[in-house]
Design a protein around this nucleic acid. Sequence first.
DNA 1: GTTGGTGCAAACGCTTTGCATCCAT
DNA 2: ATGGATGCAAAGCGTTTGCACCAAC
Lengths: 147, 147
Amino acid sequence: MKTKSGGRENSEDLRAIFHAKRLKCTPQRLAVLKVLKESGAYLSINMLDKKVKEMLPGTGLATVYRALETLEELGLVAKVHLEDGCHSYAVAPEGHMHPIVCTECNKVIDFAECPLGELSEKLTQDTGIVIQNHFLQLFGKCRECQA
Amino acid sequence: MKTKSGGRENSEDLRAIFHAKRLKCTPQRLAVLKVLKESGAYLSINMLDKKVKEMLPGTGLATVYRALETLEELGLVAKVHLEDGCHSYAVAPEGHMHPIVCTECNKVIDFAECPLGELSEKLTQDTGIVIQNHFLQLFGKCRECQA
DNA sequence: GTTGGTGCAAACGCTTTGCATCCAT
DNA sequence: ATGGATGCAAAGCGTTTGCACCAAC
């Protein structure tokens, strides 16, 4: 049984993660992360900005951008390209996995296990190309939205 | 043996493809497509604009944008999100496949066959989520760039 | 001749940056 | 106390749009 994403780090751990890279553990950064954890969905920057301002009024949009950049560096959140070209963010999954985004409610339903290790090896053998990286997202409709 | 991408439509076919949707077959649109075919790589809009202007001086940047939009609608080119967030385009593959982009030379080395049909079915059975769509790109190093 | 396409420039929206101030350490 | 982080506003940049003219049909 896997742990459900969303509660992986407690606040002590978080402080340590920041401090390990000489980064400060600020309310703004924590607020951005909290909004993402509580939502469980991919959120656009604007939506994030809106929710962060509710939680911590006075937070500037630029700070949200900077916080996301920092959190991504730390591996705490993952950036995604939605189909309309809009950038969004969600809390990062634990291992190497890929999100399934519901096209109706925009929630991250689950993280599919990565089917690509196998494919990568096969490709390297067949073609000599060394696969370094990949980008995979699944879009679908969750059970609730199928009703 | 599959045909190599790059010579799939001759000019007659192309005219027909445009006309089928009441679109005009203009030199600008053809130039954009030709640049992509001759390059065989993912090209950023700026690079495309530069090369199209070489081939057809006087072409405006807005026209390049509009041509790409049209060509994508027709399924002739594919849009891609590169890792830096920059949009690029390449000629579209024939079936449902996924590009491998060389991280050194930015060329499209090959199109991997899609490994996801199987996964999608499994996911639908296991979780009830209906997978509608996915987005996959592979990044690697081609043989030449490994030297 | 009609209709859609083009070129240009202005407008637009998302993102980044400069700088003074603030606050986590 | 000190250096990184913030807030604000301005700048930057990729992309889209309005409009008069042009070219494919």
